[in-house]
């Protein structure tokens, strides 16, 4: 039995005349103990999906189960066994670390002691500050406390809606390390994020855009499906380079990517020399050009392009 099963979920908001489709025929499955990422920008429908699965929102059509229970009919059973960290979740700012944790433990009919083992590794990092009010914690520590609160009743499925949004790169890395450790405990985790680079830390991901799932697979498989040849290009003048490459007649797609520009050609027959020639002709210097390994972000851009046309 999958931990989460979603079938043909459709969710619309707004008036009947001008409905806004938040989720458009979404289906996915998460197996037990899997770390599953829902990757997409703001407004892609991630939060709607999370709210439907956490029984907070009713879908217009389609079915979904969590731990085998129907999200509509058996929502009470689901509420007993899931952990949920909503987006922008901010705890009670005027309660201390320990008071927050104790409160959520009691609300979920358990105590800190009962499941301390599960949160121990995370909690020891914030325990020195247990008498500090949550409002006075740093972003990273708040996030750890929020995770402890969502875990305190040993949920079988954990829902984390954009836990790393607005968090710096270091705290993000630490957070993902914690999730990996939790996976070892057999907890299924559904996590959403707008950061494409986090996809590679998941077992499987769904790339979602405008309410539609564009691809579901293991990150490396998604990348393997990107069959086009991709070049990394740089020169001394990056802005002009981008502009020139975008106007190159053989360019299918070119966009900035970190210190390089990523370039996909319409016709590969000319190879490296043809590009070099073109650029030298335009007086670019310090040119670097080599084959690039695409990553999830390249795939996302590619899939977005396919969807638009």
């Amino acid at each position: 039995m999958p931990s989460i099963a979603v079938e043909n979920i459709i969710k619309k908001y707004g008036s009947k005349k001008e409905p806004v489709t938040a989720l458009d025929d979404v289906s996915l499955e998460v197996s037990k103990g899997e770390l599953f990422g829902v990757i997409g920008p703001d407004g892609a429908g991630k939060t709607s999906l999370f709210r439907i699965l956490t029984t907070l929102l009713l879908a217009d059509s389609g079915t979904a189960t969590v731990d085998g229970f129907d999200v509509v009919k058996q929502y009470k059973e689901i509420r007993n066994r899931i952990g949920y960290m909503p987006g922008k979740f901010s705890l009670y700012q005027d309660l201390t670390v320990e008071e927050n944790l104790r409160f959520f433990a009691t609300i979920f009919n358990t105590s800190i002691q009962e499941n301390y083992e599960l949160i121990k590794e995370i909690y020891v990092q914030i325990e020195p500050f247990k008498d500090r009010r949550a409002g006075k914690l740093s972003g990273g520590m708040k996030q750890k406390l929020a995770l402890c609160c969502a875990l305190i009743h040993r949920p079988s499925v954990l829902f984390l809606d954009e836990p790393t949004t607005g968090v710096d790169a270091v705290s993000r890395k630490e957070f993902w390390e914690m999730l990996k450790a939790l996976k070892q405990q057999g907890i299924s985790i559904l996590v959403s994020t707008p950061y494409m680079d986090e996809a590679e830390l998941c077992d499987r991901v769904a790339l979602i855009q405008s309410g539609k799932i564009m691809s579901i697979d293991m990150p490396q498989h998604i990348i393997q499906k990107f069959t086009k040849t991709m070049w990394s290009v740089r020169s001394a003048e990056m802005v002009r380079l981008l502009n020139d490459l975008q106007h190159y007649s053989n360019t299918e797609k070119c966009y900035a990517f970190g210190e390089f520009h990523h370039l996909v050609l319409k016709n590969e027959s000319g190879g490296k020399d043809e590009i070099l020639q073109y650029l030298q002709h335009l007086a670019h210097h310090e040119i670097e050009l080599h084959l690039a390994q695409p990553n999830i972000e390249d795939c996302f851009i590619e899939l977005m392009g396919n969807n638009k046309s």
């Binding site: 509420r79 899931i82 949920y84 909503p86 979740f89 901010s90 959520f104 979920f108």
Partner: peptide
Amino acid sequence: EINTMEVLLVSPL
């Protein structure tokens, strides 16, 4: 406003 409501609703409370 601070989204704790969502967690409380999801809890068995």
